[in-house]
Design a protein around this nucleic acid. Structure first.
Lengths: 139, 139
DNA sequence: TTACTATATGAGAATAATTCTTAAAAAAGA
DNA sequence: TCTTTTTTAAGAATTATTCTCATATAGTAA
């Protein structure tokens, strides 16, 4: 479940001081699998630790993104969301709601990276490719 | 250049009343090819028509997105952006700045739609697929 | 352990983007 | 034209996020 030692290590290895607040944020993002917004994370943490400042949580999220501990997910509408899954994956976006799910597909990854190993884009160096698959969840 | 009759028609065909303000907004988004933010659009319009209300422009942008006349593009950090290009295209995102460019590639579109014509995603009906190609512009 | 220094935090003010409210104005239809 | 419905202007309100700065704490070195 919540491997506090692992979380402590991740923060430390990223070159950040380990603080109770950072532990709480990283634990929250790891536990909340639904691409939470900053606000979701704030609520989650403050339910049990009402003394943690909102600005602190925003700053910690920035720290973590900067150090690569978590990622930001771009959605069409609404606010910023965060993602603790760092393996290469794509996202399924519901056209009619806020729902976002991960989509992992190595065959697809291979197909795309093969394609771009021969094809280059003029004036642009590719670092990463993500698919936004928009549609409807049927469940 | 600015085909005012075409713009009028687009608005009308979308089932919206044609007003001067809507003409201005659709013309602005069509002319500004750089994925403008709401604020860019507001500045552009108010330079020549300072009497158009900010809230009106926001509401018109919403109308247009809802009717499919324009699209929203969201990037990692910053605000909402708008896009008038309705052909199927992808986006190049600069990892180090706000820059976004369109990327059209029919060969790629074919590749992907072929892939997903055989492969289905459990519990999900695909409506559209967009690539976010992240990297660096070399010019 | 204690002290030191850099960094992180809490609290709330400030800012920025967007939405809401309401009365007045204008569009489309009869 | 007159009527009905929709749209607009203006600015207040809301929401998300960033900033400020005094205090507190983590990591390190003695």
């Amino acid at each position: 479940m919540m491997d506090l030692i692992g979380i402590r290590e991740q923060i430390s290895n990223a070159g950040l001081k380990v603080t109770p607040q950072r532990m709480l944020v990283l634990e929250a993002v790891s536990v909340m699998k639904n691409h939470p917004t900053a606000d979701n994370i704030i609520d989650f943490i403050r339910k049990n630790h009402p003394n943690v400042a909102v600005g602190t949580i925003y700053k910690i999220l920035d720290n973590f993104v900067e150090k690569g501990l978590i990622k930001m997910v771009k959605t069409d509408k609404d606010k910023m969301r965060y993602d603790s899954v760092l393996t290469n994956h794509h996202h399924l976006y519901c056209a009619g709601s806020d729902r976002i799910e991960d989509y992992e597909d190595n065959e697809l990854n291979t197909l795309i990276s093969n394609y771009f190993s021969t094809k280059t884009i003029d004036g642009f160096t590719i670092e990463d490719i993500k698919l936004q698959i928009i549609g409807r969840f049927t469940n």
